[in-house]
Nucleic acid binder design. Structure first.
Length: 481
RNA sequence: GUCCCGUUCGUCUAGUGGCCUAGGACAUCGGCCUUUCACGCCGGCAACACGGGUUCGAUUCCCGUACGGGACGCCA
């Protein structure tokens, strides 16, 4: 790789703060970073923003990593930890002081609170008034101080956001933000700028809640003589109430979606369509997303999370997924539903009968359970509707016919059914439904011929005979009543 | 309160001045298919926030209003 190519290579970063799980909004940001990097042949980096030592935990880091891995959004580089670069951050702040671009401020929290209170009263935007900025008295070391950036007082900051378009903010709206806390630790805005620069980040893709930080960060870049990256601020994801999705507000871990039976590709597919589109296309594989994604075509308005569309997309992906993908998933969900060690051969055989009927893997497992467990009881409503006295004879005749059957496959089974309904002048449903009740306990199942074939002769006949006994008993007691 | 951003069917969106009596998808409603349930197919309902401009012509451009969101921390 020559220098030119190095310069042209894009580098994006996903920068979560490890204060909790990875929720769907964060996952969407990660996805867009990933897609942008992949589409442009660049690098996607994970950087953990743990400058807030109070709230950051190792557990959260692990869970975020797990979530990204499940989604297939594993970083090309990292995870890097912002806290590892604390010395660099501190030195950079000091360097700014030495260059006269930052200064010590020894205002106390009480002073700052009072200042903000007054401003609020005057209906002004609360901000630091810069009273320590031009102080001539030498700062004393015994009084705690922070380092603040000398934000330009005049002019404005302008940048061409890849999503939002040109945004301009007057410097008069900004204040002298804190770079280093009184305990010497760097703040978020400083750390982000220093890290983005040193990691060679070319494109910052993040949530719209960061637009107000952007002018501050650009000022830090400029004070340092560095070139800011390109910015793309994504519209936020909202809950059903229209407010921003957050950990304490309606959002759940992405891993919850795995547990609820969603396929990672489907979740990504749903997420990418929130704000981005490619004509009328709704279903995308990961490969298609990478090939077609264009950050310039991301919309600017917030989207509301809607589960029913996710369900539909998940169903689409279930139907097109390779059996090899579905098999372990289905086995896992069956086990979660109390089926111990489901036979893989059986699962593989039944998979085609249930995959068209399920929107989630949980639903698929639920619809597959009867293959493993004979009905303990028969659904009342189904019994009343389908196990009618006039069907007892045909039902018994069918059981006899099936018992005598030499070949046990869907074709032979169907032929046996047809012969019985012809003999008794019935419609298929009148015979098929009672059999469903016998086999599954309910009147809903995949094609009953397929079900019987997959279940196997012994299990099927056992269930049919058990039901026949029940059926007879029911007719006798009804006759007496 | 101040600043920034947004506003097309219930929801996700297409649309970059005439192709729009505004297209697609989910949801919903009706029908078909059918051994049930799904899938699939066919069809219905349903939107350019409002008011001013600019223009021969605005969903598309400009201004204002309303509404919504975001940000205003020694959090990130």
């Amino acid at each position: 790789m020559n220098d030119m190519e190095l310069v042209m290579t894009t580098r994006t970063r996903f920068a979560p703060s490890p204060t909790g799980f990875l929720h769907i909004g964060g996952a969407r940001t990660a996805l867009f970073c990933y897609l942008f990097a992949r589409h442009t042949g660049g690098t996607y980096i994970l950087r953990v923003e743990d400058t807030d030592r109070e709230r950051s935990t190792h557990e959260a880091v692990a869970v975020i990593l797990q979530g990204l891995e499940w989604l297939g959004l594993k970083p090309d580089e990292g995870p890097f930890f912002q806290s590892d670069a604390t010395d660099l951050h501190r030195q950079t702040a000091l360097q700014l002081v030495a260059a006269g671009k930052a200064y010590r401020c020894s205002c106390t929290r009480e002073e700052l609170d009072a200042m903000r209170e007054e401003q609020r009263l005057r209906q002004e935007k609360p901000r630091y008034d810069g009273r320590c900025r031009e102080r001539t008295d030498p700062p004393s070391d015994d009084r705690p101080y922070v380092i603040r950036l000398k934000t330009p007082r005049d002019g404005e900051v302008v940048w061409d956001d890849m999503i939002q378009g040109r945004i301009r903010v007057s410097n008069g709206e900004l204040d002298d933000l804190i770079l280093l806390r009184s305990d010497g630790s760097p703040t978020y805005n400083l750390a982000v700028v220093v890290d983005d620069h040193h990691m060679g980040i070319t494109h910052v893709i993040r949530g719209e809640d960061h637009v107000s930080n952007t002018p501050r960060q650009i000022h830090i870049f400029e004070a340092l003589g560095w070139t800011p990256p390109a910015y793309a601020h994504m519209p936020l994801l909202h809950g059903t109430d229209g407010a921003k999705l957050s950990k304490r507000h309606g959002a759940v871990s992405v891993l919850q979606y795995r547990d609820n039976g969603y396929l990672p590709e489907a979740v990504n597919n749903y997420l990418v369509r929130l704000g981005w589109s490619h004509g009328d296309q709704e279903i995308f594989t990961m490969v298609e997303m990478v090939a077609l994604f264009d950050v310039h075509h991301v919309g600017r308005s917030a989207a509301i999370f809607n589960v029913s569309k996710l369900d539909w997309i998940n169903g689409q992906h279930i139907r097109s997924a390779a059996p090899e993908v579905l098999l372990p998933e289905l086995i896992a969900h069956l086990e979660r539903q109390g089926i111990a060690h489901p036979d893989p051969a059986l699962v593989r055989a039944l998979l085609p009968t249930v995959r068209e009927r399920a929107k989630t893997m949980v639903e698929m497992a639920d619809k597959s359970r009867f293959y493993f467990q004979a009905p303990q009881t028969y659904d009342d409503k189904a019994v009343r509707k389908h196990l009618r006295p006039e069907i007892l004879d045909p039902f018994a005749a069918l059981v006899a016919a099936l018992t005598a059957l030499s070949a046990w496959d869907a074709t032979a089974l169907e032929a046996a059914f047809k012969s019985v309904i012809a003999d008794h002048d019935l419609k298929m449903g009148q015979l098929a439904q009672p059999v469903r009740v016998a086999i599954t306990g309910s009147d809903v199942s995949p094609s009953i011929f397929d079900v019987l074939a997959i279940l196997g002769r012994d299990a099927a006949l056992a269930r049919l005979n058990a039901c026949l006994d029940f059926f007879r008993g029911r007719c006798v007691s009804e006759g007496q009543g």
